[in-house]
Design a protein around this nucleic acid. Structure first.
Lengths: 105, 105
DNA sequence: TGTTGTCTTGTCAAACTATGACAAAAATAC
DNA sequence: GTATTTTTGTCATAGTTTGACAAGACAACA
């Protein structure tokens, strides 16, 4: 149901790892991993980094996917009708750009 | 500090309304409004709509600004280094587009 | 069929976060 | 000075999320 969760699952399956091993890596139980992989629980930042290490994938890429889901979560109620959600994305983008400009200055 | 909060304040000042009147409209006290206008509290969706009515501005526009802040909140910790935040925006945008496409289908 | 290992689901307390109320201080106006 | 508006600090309450546990489902296979 969520890109992030599906991605995690697919990474695990490609590497033929059991949920119990992922659980050990995150110091959680398999029930939690199962829910992560079905999008019923959200990972926390720290866990995303551990997963990236475990699966040996780029941390920033995994973080982007994870964050993207969180962003979508904020918008999903509005995303139905029209431009509100997309406008909101623009607002956020402008703030990011503005902040980065300030810093390089 | 936040676009939304500054906007609210400026709307109120343009119309020469007191915080007490805004508070009445939202059924809150002035302390709360003060914090809203300084970005120390986040409005809830319902309150945004009330504000749009009170100030007689477009609801969708105000919602976009408000949502944009919420989105930025999710990203602000990452927005420092590099592309993670902007990538996350793209991920979210794709999900929105994908969902809209599904619906019109 | 029974056993073993893996994954899933339901439930819940504890941890965490946010809201909005109140009181008291600060600022502004008169 | 007083009166009014705005700000700040503190806090109980409500609301949400996490992760632990127990029990169930499913698959492989002897």
């Amino acid at each position: 149901m969520s890109q992030f969760s599906e991605h995690i699952r697919s990474l695990r399956e490609k590497r033929k790892i059991r949920q119990r091993e992922v659980a050990a890596c995150l110091k959680a139980d398999t029930a939690f991993i199962s829910k992560l992989e079905k999008g019923e629980r959200q990972a926390r930042r720290e866990q995303v980094l551990l997963l990236a290490e475990l699966f040996n994938v780029d941390k920033e890429e995994l973080l982007s996917l994870w964050l993207g889901e969180k962003v979508y979560d904020v918008l999903k109620n509005e995303s139905a009708k029209g431009g509100v959600a997309k406008q909101a994305l623009k607002v956020a983008e402008n703030k990011i750009d503005y902040n980065n400009k300030k810093k390089t200055k």
